[in-house]
Design a protein around this nucleic acid. Structure first.
Lengths: 264, 264
DNA sequence: TGATCTGTGTACGATATTGCACACGGCGTC
DNA sequence: GACGCCGTGTGCAATATCGTACACAGATCA
């Protein structure tokens, strides 16, 4: 089963874990550290103590679908070592990523925003772990109108910025610029400078052809900014990658830092 | 002063009202009807009575900038007969609309979401009226955790859908399809089937060339779907226009209806 | 070891959009 | 009534991306 299939057909069960050199390490890290999610770690002890009992650390295999477009959400997820992509899939199968969520955020905001569902799909883009919390419980906690609510609202605001910036980026920037932005955003949500990610999957995320990604990635490799090999990308020169990216990356990053300064 | 200038330079004072045949009518309507904004009209009488004293009906001249990117928000706005566009302006002057807000919504969600500011600009896209409410007061009301909060959160969720769909639309659909979508979305927020809107301004909203809009609009006129003349657009065959638009329009509309069924 | 699959490289014409230049006609202004 | 501006129409070369087809090499599995 390949990336294409994940996008076009809903999955009910996780596919088998991709082989990567650091999966063992990151999984151990995910299982070890209880509050590796920045939103959770920003909670006052009092609130955290109330919530922790309802949380369950779960593995998030590559390609697993957390929510299908329009499906009812039963849980929300706080990623620790995993990265989740929110994407829209259109009637003709074309897709585009609207946001990336890692250990700085939460997947399932529409649960507390009041909608219960969204027209988007939530797909595990990088394997790892996430805390799972029952949706009803989180909703109760949210409407206590305490620190958790403020935190989640601020995060939602940051997410909105990310989505908006992605939108203008789609309109005005080249595939290469977007690839840089995307690599940096993913990198920010991972412990190392290594990504496990085929060009095909990246293409589906950016909503462009796979060949376009091949071409842009080849350019970046020639420039010595990255090196990649069969689904394994290593970022060699991050500052240069930032210079190559469009302003969109910096704008979103600044806004996240401004809205959620206590994270990281 | 033309549309281009609005986008690139901040405005401190409203520019003079555009001359249109129905401005007199729509202004009168705006001034007459006190609760013409759907969010406000959905409030229980009790909440409405508390809020109404703090509201002020204000004229919204075409091209007026409600918020500049990054500026502190002092008020929020509930449009009645006006339409406000939220748009991102990039470093090189290129712009793109990320959402449209009319009498179904509110401008200034980041005030209660916790950010106080956003990196976007709010620009009056169609002249009319709006209720203005002091930001601090609205924030207090929001954190009463009553019907207003639920309403605003649900609206925000709908707005997120609109932004996400705009994003994929930017990626995958032709200028003509997007023009159809944009006309329909604007039309939904106006009382008649007439828009006062130059092709230049539409181009800046969609983030495309003015000539591209000319070409697409010409096609739609030849097909008999619209007729336009110097900044005046009349929609002649709405069903056909919907058929010509991409799925994005319908998706967003459905989601608004689902999340805010009491409106309209 | 050989067969197959998966991820990547490359080439080609087709298409959509851009940037630029300029023409034209209506409308407001003086 | 003449002038100038604004909104629109049109044409053309340059560019980016797409759709398609196919080649190739490493990895997996029999």
């Amino acid at each position: 089963m390949n990336a294409d299939t994940w996008l076009k057909e809903p999955l009910t069960e996780p596919i088998k874990q991709a082989r990567t050199s650091d999966d063992g390490r990151s999984m151990a890290a995910g299982a070890d550290a209880p509050r590796q999610n920045h939103l959770l770690s920003a909670l006052p002890a009092e609130d955290w103590d109330r919530i922790r009992a309802h949380m369950e650390l779960r593995p998030m295999p590559l390609g697993h679908v957390l929510y299908e477009s329009g499906s009812t959400m039963r849980h929300v997820y706080f990623p620790t070592t995993s990265i989740v992509a929110l994407l829209y899939v259109m009637a003709d199968g074309a897709s585009a990523e609207i946001a990336i969520v890692g250990n700085e955020g939460i997947v399932g905001i529409s649960l507390f925003m009041g909608g219960e569902t969204t027209p988007s799909r939530a797909l595990v883009q990088s394997a790892g772990y996430a805390y799972r919390v029952p949706g009803n419980f989180l909703k109760e906690e949210f409407f206590r109108a305490g620190p958790l609510q403020r935190l989640l609202l601020r995060y939602t605001q940051a997410l909105i910025t990310q989505m908006a910036q992605t939108s203008v980026c789609n309109r005005h920037h080249s595939v290469e610029q977007q690839l840089c932005r995307w690599l940096l955003m993913s990198l920010d949500r991972l412990p190392s400078n290594e990504l496990t990610m085929t060009q095909e999957l990246i293409a589906n995320m950016l909503g462009v052809r796979r060949e376009g990604v091949t071409e842009s990635a080849g350019k970046l490799q020639q420039l010595g900014l990255i090196s990649y090999n069969r689904g394994h990308i290593v970022v060699l020169d991050r500052p240069a990658l930032e210079a190559q990216a469009c302003e969109c990356y910096a704008v979103v990053k600044l806004e996240f830092d401004r809205l959620l300064p206590f994270l990281r």
